[in-house]
Amino acid sequence: MTDIVVDMGSVALGYEHDNLISVGLGSCVGVALYDPEKKIGGMAHIMLPNSKEIPSQQIERKALIAEKDSKIRSSLKNTLAHLGFASITETEEKEGTLAKYKETSPSIAFISAFLPPTNGVDTAKAILSKEPNAPIVIMSPPTDRTTISYYSQEGAKEVMISPFTEERVRSVSEFILGINQLKFADKAIQVLVELMVNRGADKRRLVAKIAGGAHMFPTLMDEEVINIGNRNINISKKNLKEMGIPLEAEETGASIGRTVTLEVATGKLRIKTKDGIKEL
């Protein structure tokens, strides 16, 4: 069995030997989809109801690429241009990177882990010492977890492992720019169904189970907060209905936190709370 953790505001797919897990759902909703015949499962960890309600702000897309290898540089530049980055600056060593960072104030800085003369972390630290919140992404070839968490601890907001596919660059960019669409119920369910169908699931066979959408502080009467959970539940159900996916079971609302696990082999949804474990 492989445990696949679905991060807040994202979706994931799993096959017969996988468990899909959304850890610590409070107001968030976990939507589990399942094709019983093909044994393909999917889970969305939803934060917000509807992508259309949020006014799309004018978000500046300005990138800095600090990379010695000109091939990687130009390929990443093409990808970013394709993703709508209007201004892309390239550098190949530390001093140039610091100067260009200061000059252009990019909304994302992609810095190679092996940037001359020493390494990318050194350059990242020089930027972070002046601007502790700097939007830095460290680019690295495949490496171990310790190294990745070392990059994060040194201040990288995200670590991007090669190959830098368009899908990966998009998700990293959206995360940094704060415009991740998959945190919304409507978008997440739609994308999840598409992904499952692409991998061989039949949309007509899909069934759904959902959990979460709690209101964790029962004495808090703030309507905005109360509504986050409720609306996540309602919009998730509405979207499932519109897509013709039957809701087989749910464990929603109330004031209790839940960790949910979809066991893809059986389609069972296991719900862990402070009071114990329950299966749907």
Binding site: M8, G24, K183, M216, T219, I228, G257
Partner: peptide, 27 residues
């Protein structure tokens, strides 16, 4: 405001705050 108290898993108490601010702040 008056304080509100709840006991549960850490992430479950935090997610509505993360949701509220996910549109503007990130630290």
């Amino acid at each position: 405001s008056v304080p509100h108290v709840a006991a549960d898993m850490a992430q479950t108490l935090l997610d509505f705050i993360l949701i509220k601010i996910s549109k503007c702040a990130d630290t």
